[in-house]
């Protein structure tokens, strides 16, 4: 572990012949990077871009992959997670895709990664300056659930006319007694634009606020980019008498014992017995190892 971090990340070096570096052609990557620069310049504002066909279907992360392909360099170390896990099909195949078309190194360790592409989570391990998060976004428009017209939502963003976002939260309280939106919880960025943080659990919303990492969001089907530059104020919308709060079961991870991480609930037998385990597999594994070592040293 220390060896890996000390030196330069080991590149696999093996690239499939016949492909441009990172699959996309250079013109397309430049076009996307121009879009990303605009997105960084106007935090939370959705920039349209000319999405390319990728070798996997919409809904599997085509937006995130195009962003990653456009920003990745041969020196980068890539981590890919799906619902917090490095070892699920989607995460594994995207990681392998970039290993083969870019010859880059990959990792499962949050601290080692320079680019982390994610679906539905932000790692538990605090991000550092210089790291880039790439989010896969299914529906970039936070106002759409209330206002289906795209021209109207564009106008509402332009005018900062966000009353209807609270209409949605109001409806939540009406139906559930509290704000029940538990993922894709809308945020106000830098005191201006309202943004959909992608379907991360609202547990992760506070991690967006003033993060030292750069956050890039790509929606492949809808061909939109948006971004949070490092150290951007990100506020979750709420009511004075129903303030934003994160939820977490009163439980510890069955594997690493964490009482702070976001947990997945598992039904482990036919009787409906539950276990909770960390959704972030890397975090969980590090903690479990540390506990093992501590136990080992003690014995």
């Amino acid at each position: 572990m220390n060896a890996a971090r000390a030196g330069k990340a080991p590149r696999s070096g093996k690239m499939l012949p016949g492909y441009n570096f990172a699959y996309l052609d250079e013109e397309s990557k430049r076009m996307i990077r121009r879009g990303l620069l605009k997105a960084v310049a106007i935090p939370g504002f959705q920039i349209p871009f000319g999405g390319r066909e990728m070798p996997l279907p919409y809904g599997w992360g085509t937006g995130g992959i195009q962003v990653t392909a456009s920003i990745i360099t041969p020196e980068d170390v890539l981590k890919v997670i799906d619902q917090g896990a490095d070892d699920t099909t989607n995460a594994v195949s995207i990681r392998q895709f970039f290993e083969r078309v870019a010859g880059i190194a990959s990792t499962t360790r949050t601290r080692e990664a320079t680019i982390i592409q994610t679906r539905h989570r932000i790692p538990e391990t605090p991000l550092a300056s210089g790291q880039i998060m790439v989010f896969q976004v299914p529906i970039p428009e936070p106002l759409r659930f209330i206002e289906p017209s795209e021209t109207e939502t564009a106008t509402l963003h332009a005018l900062g006319d966000y009353g209807i976002m609270h209409v949605k939260l109001y409806e939540d309280i009406v139906r559930h007694g509290h704000i029940a939106t538990c993922y894709a919880y809308p945020v106000e960025v830098n005191g201006r634009y309202v943004m959909d943080p992608s379907p991360i659990p609202r547990f992760d919303n506070p991690k967006l606020h003033m993060s030292p990492a750069l956050m890039l969001f790509g929606a492949g089907r809808e061909k939109r980019l948006y971004a949070l530059p490092p150290h951007t104020a990100v506020v979750s919308l709420d009511f004075e008498d129903h303030p934003f709060a994160i939820q977490r079961p009163e439980a510890a991870c069955a594997i690493c014992g964490s009482t702070e991480s976001y947990l997945d609930e598992l039904i482990v037998d036919d009787a409906g017995a539950r276990r909770y385990v960390c959704s972030d597999t890397d975090y969980c594994q590090r903690r479990a190892e540390a506990r093992g070592e501590a136990r080992g040293e003690a014995s």
């Binding site: 006319d161 209807i164 209409v167 109001y170 009406v174 709420d238 008498d241």
Partner: peptide
């Protein structure tokens, strides 16, 4: 009207657009 949302939210929308952020008062 916004047909998919409750009567209360329909009435409250203008207030929310003007910055009202107190559910009880809405």
């Amino acid at each position: 009207l916004r047909m998919p949302v409750s009567a209360g939210a329909n009435i409250g929308e203008r207030l929310m657009a003007q910055g009202a952020r107190h559910y009880g008062r809405l």
